[in-house]
Design a protein around this nucleic acid. Structure first.
Lengths: 192, 192
DNA sequence: CGGTCTCTTGACGGAGTTCAAAGCTAGTGG
DNA sequence: CCACTAGCTTTGAACTCCGTCAAGAGACCG
């Protein structure tokens, strides 16, 4: 809870009273490895913040059954299907624990109420939304612009703390590359 | 201006007085074919709504000088670098008119003021943001999941009104495919 | 008409996939 | 403490999708 508040205070100011109110809106939840936070077709009822652990969001390729990774999220990240949560409509994604994960959650109704009681949070969540949007835009352009090897090394640079916690085949899927090819890239550059 | 207001009223309610206030915040602007709305390195000072015309947002591949299309936008769409506009920081994209384009614009300061005077608009712009975010997420997963041919036909289905107004090589770049390959796809399926 | 912009076509090559098998590694239970 | 399993990574060989280059064919516009 403290790291969440710290995260928020990096972007907006909250009074001590607001912080107390804030804390009461959230509940803790634990997912064991392999457990689902959300399944394709369900509505995302909670906004979830990761205290510790790793989650993956993906959808299933209907042709070959492969998982296509939308995002990988670790400690101090949000892991919510924003479209599904904000419109309370069915999600097309699955979100699943890669390892045991501790969350802080808030339901959709409570979320609205919280924003009314602590208006500064409107700004915080807008900032989060916009910065996520910026990374998505970059990812799209980047995907078209660079080759597998460059994408892979850029990922290593940008998300070193994810790399050390998830298997390579998930990173491969995130990047739209085959796991085997990442293996070959690594082999090629072992000297360095 | 009327189509913009119609667009907004599809998502939130505005009183007649609010609509009057709203109109006063916006100014008209015309871009000739080839003119830039924004250049890489500049800050995006205006939020821009397209009354009529076509814009492309892209960045330049430093290796071969190619344009990598981030988005193509036509009548009744927004065409703003949201990250750059909301943080008032330098943009990494270019936005340029594909044909003569009429815009409605509002500066960053005025935008903030407008939101204060017409609070319902907070909701409207959040909805726009979230739905754009949803399309970006889908585009990422889709790009990794499908082959060139499927991506191309999906684009034809999803954005028929863009297809009829921009050259094929821009659509190719948007999809991360070569223009030549799209030509081959079309040839292959000419019978249908 | 002549020039510019866009689309098409062909030949070739390369980046990356697929499939199957083998090698690792870490955890688990006996 | 060792053996076994399950999950992950590596490797090899064949294959394919798609990009690149270069040239030509339309199409549009002054």
């Amino acid at each position: 809870m403290e790291t969440l508040i710290k995260n928020i205070l990096q972007h907006v100011r909250l009074s001590p009273e607001e912080i107390v109110i804030f804390k009461n809106f959230w509940t803790e939840k634990t997912l064991e490895k392999g457990e689902f936070l959300l399944r394709n077709g369900e509505t995302c009822r909670y906004d979830s913040y990761i205290v510790s652990g790793v989650l993956k969001a993906f959808c299933i390729n209907s042709e070959n059954g492969n998982e296509e990774i939308l995002f990988l999220a670790i400690d101090d990240w949000w892991a919510t299907d924003i479209s599904s949560f904000s419109k309370q409509k069915a999600s097309i994604y699955n979100i699943q624990a890669v390892e045991k994960t501790n969350l802080l959650q808030i339901g959709h109704q409570s979320f609205q109420k919280m924003l009314q009681e602590i208006p500064s949070l409107e700004r915080y969540f807008r900032i989060i939304l916009e910065s996520y949007l910026g990374t998505l835009e970059k990812r799209i352009v980047f995907n078209n612009m660079y080759k597998a090897e460059q994408k892979y090394y850029d990922f290593l640079d940008t998300y070193p703390d994810i790399v050390s916690r998830v298997p390579q085949y998930l990173i491969a899927s995130y990047l739209g590359i085959s796991a085997e090819f990442i293996s070959r890239i690594r082999k090629k550059n072992k000297s360095s």
